[in-house]
């Protein structure tokens, strides 16, 4: 977490659509200059929270504070935040330059002045040469950059990004992730990033809030979420996990709560093998190999205990190809086993 005053403070925020509670009594503080992600499956309430911060939705109850100001009832045009929309929402009848200059135009900035600033904003996203094009003459990635330039040209305190990379292909998405991170560092303003892609959230963020059913399931740094998930939902949604139900945990591991362990923390040896020497407090589970999948950078081995619990192991420097039906021991370090609710 970046130290500093809070840029956004949400208190007891609730949004109901008819009987459906989209956001349920949410408290959240986001610091100035922070890259904050709201991560969750669709329908988890993350986009509704973003829309309430932007002012497109009014909360059923609770307050939205921007810096020291209560903006709960203010219209979007009275809030010092700007949004990059999922569908980019570029004005089709305006050129790229006019799109970017729009925020300045409605603020009454003179034509010459606003075109200069818009051009500068286009330069930060490397599109200064396309200013005279219409949005429909651009590629998806270029539109994305124009939407970014249009939002940052008015120098908001907070930039809201609603699944901005969702429509881009994988290569472009990875490139844009790097650029977004660099842009945030350069501008020094708060970014609030909504995504359902856990990898994206982990890569980009200072802190991540994992949403489920209108509530924050867990809030923390990417490391905390990944290494210490507090619930089965987080363990499964952020990365992949081997989750043991309470009964299974008791039978297999001898502990009294649900537990989870990451596939890459597991090691595998022959049934007769001894513990890998680098494990300090090794624990072992006897399993049978069900399938072994070669992934290039690693091998994923799907195994099963006698009781039928599936355990997946990710080995990065595998010395050996395991055969289907082979008896093995799956090893892990006591401390890598995370007890969850």
């Amino acid at each position: 977490m970046v130290a500093g005053d809070s840029a956004i403070k949400l208190s007891k925020l609730t949004k109901r659509f008819g009987d459906f509670v989209a956001v349920d009594n949410l408290d959240l503080e986001i610091a100035e200059g922070e890259f904050f992600s709201m991560l969750g499956p669709s329908g988890s309430g993350k986009t509704t929270v973003l829309r309430m911060i932007a002012g497109f939705e009014l909360p059923s109850s609770g307050t939205v504070q921007l810096g020291a100001d209560d903006v709960t009832d203010k219209a979007p045009f009275d809030r010092d935040v700007n949004t990059v929309f999922q569908d980019y929402a570029l004005f089709p009848h305006m050129t790229v330059l006019e799109n970017v200059a729009y925020g300045l135009r409605v603020r009454g900035v003179g034509k010459k002045e606003r075109e200069q600033q818009a051009l500068a904003a286009l330069e930060t996203v490397q599109l200064a040469h396309l200013g005279s094009r219409k949005p429909n003459e651009l590629s998806g990635g270029q539109r994305q950059r124009v939407a970014l330039a249009r939002a940052i040209v008015v120098k908001p305190k907070v930039l809201l990004l609603d699944e901005p990379l969702g429509a881009l292909d994988l290569k472009l998405r990875e490139q844009m992730q790097i650029e977004l991170k660099a842009l945030q560092r350069e501008l020094g303003i708060t970014f609030i990033f909504v995504t359902h892609d856990q990898e994206e959230a982990l890569t980009l963020s200072d802190r991540v809030a994992v949403f489920n059913n209108g509530r924050i399931e867990q809030l923390g740094t990417p490391e905390e979420l990944y290494d210490r998930p507090v619930s089965e939902f987080v363990a499964r949604f952020v990365g992949t996990s081997n989750v043991f139900s309470a009964d299974e945990a008791k039978a297999i591991l001898g502990i009294d709560s649900k537990a989870s362990v990451r596939p890459e923390k597991l090691r595998i040896t022959a049934a007769t093998g001894s513990a890998p020497s680098d494990l300090r407090i090794p624990r072992a589970i006897e399993c049978t190999v069900e399938e072994s999948v070669y992934l290039g950078v690693a091998v994923r081995i799907h195994t099963k205990t006698k009781a039928g619990q599936r355990i997946s192991v990710l080995e990065h420097d595998s010395q050996q190809r395991w055969q289907r039906g082979e008896s093995v021991k799956v090893w892990f370090e006591e401390q890598d086993l995370v007890r969850i609710d």
Binding site: A54, G55, F56, A75, P76, F77, V81, N82, T83, F85, Q86, D87, A89, L90, F91, P92, H93, Y102, G103, R105, V106, R107, R150, A151, V154
Partner: peptide, 27 residues
């Protein structure tokens, strides 16, 4: 005219009438 265009105009600081004049009417 997608709703997001009206929201974008409002988000960028345009009041209702300005949004109507600069976005809705031309489209």
């Amino acid at each position: 005219v997608p709703n997001s265009l009206l929201e974008a105009a409002s988000d960028l600081g345009a009041k209702s009438f300005t949004t109507f004049r600069t976005v809705v009417l031309p489209m």
